[in-house]
């Protein structure tokens, strides 16, 4: 492994100054559960690692007008927070199945997003919860919907002098429910062959769907916001038949590759099954939230 310096940044300005000076020769360290493995595997080399776990904005986790998750907040802090667990069930599904307990002590949802894996468990739930990425550079602040953040396998839209500061998720409305499921060969500790996140909103126990978002993982170069199947659901009755139809449309929005984890046909079948299942769970959760 190429030797690198360690900088424990105490502020956003200090972090950005290092990125501005070193560009791609510096990387931000949050939980390190992807970055340290990649450095050890000599996927790329850097001269400095900037630890942001002491940067107040990166540690922030609070619910106000919206949920703010600092980019270095580890998974366990999210799922052990009962207020967040009640409001953001899809996010909790993901935070509690990323890696094992050891990984959840360190790995952050922000890092999961920046790592931009097509199979990242954290990203589909963010998409269905309508999350926004807050990005900062030395000169500008910008925001981008999470579904537009990843640009390819392992690639994101951050410039060399930019950092992901936090993720902002709007407060869910009454009658909102969400769920995330993945398929893996083992029970725990594996990478998704395919995964689906779903969110729906209903006004009353027997009303039509007023809002829906479906996101697909590991079936394209990035996690996919499945807009056609999401839009199809709006105005429909939330029945199993309608969920089956939405799942067929979602299958058409996936473009999986075949690799050692699974064939395209298996992945498309998983999209079909997991879309129906997550919509069903999202509906159950929505009904408890009326």
């Amino acid at each position: 492994m190429h030797p690198f310096n360690y900088i424990a940044a105490s502020s956003v300005d200090e972090t950005l100054a290092v990125l501005d000076e070193l560009g791609p020769r510096a990387r931000i360290l949050a939980g390190g559960t992807d970055l340290l493995v990649q450095l050890r595997g000599e996927r790329f080399e850097i001269d400095s690692i900037v630890d942001i776990k002491q940067v107040p904005e990166a540690r922030a986790l609070h619910v106000g007008d919206s949920l703010i998750i600092g980019s270095a907040v580890p998974c366990y802090q999210i799922y052990e927070n009962s207020e967040i667990a009640n409001l953001y069930p899809g996010l909790i599904d993901a935070a509690s199945l990323i890696g094992g307990i050891q990984i959840q002590s360190r790995a952050s949802i922000g890092g999961n997003l920046c790592n931009a894996s097509p199979s990242a468990d954290g990203i589909c739930p963010l998409i269905v919860h309508s999350a926004i990425a807050n990005i900062k550079s030395p000169t500008t602040d910008r925001t981008i919907p999470v579904e537009d953040f990843c640009t390819g396998p392992g690639k994101n839209s951050l410039q060399n002098n930019e950092m992901l500061l936090s993720i902002k998720i709007p407060l869910p409305s009454k009658g909102f429910g969400a769920a995330y499921q993945r398929f893996i060969p083992r029970n725990e500790m594996d990478i998704a062959i395919a995964s689906v996140g779903s969110a729906i909103t209903v006004d009353t126990i027997d009303s039509n769907i007023t809002h829906a978002r479906i996101a697909l993982g590991a079936v394209g170069p990035t996690p996919i916001f499945a807009k056609k199947s999401s839009d199809f659901l709006i105005g429909k009755q939330p029945t199993q038949h309608v969920f089956e139809e939405a799942a067929e449309i979602a299958v058409g929005e996936a473009s999986p590759i075949g690799d050692m984890r699974g064939t395209p046909a298996q992945r498309l079948q998983l999209v079909r099954v997991l879309t129906q299942r997550t919509l069903t769970i999202a509906l159950e959760r929505a009904k408890t939230n009326l």
Binding site: L36, D51, I103, R106
Partner: peptide
């Protein structure tokens, strides 16, 4: 996992 933590951290 102590392999995924830096001593400096």
């Amino acid at each position: 996992d102590s392999c995924l933590v830096l001593g400096a951290e």
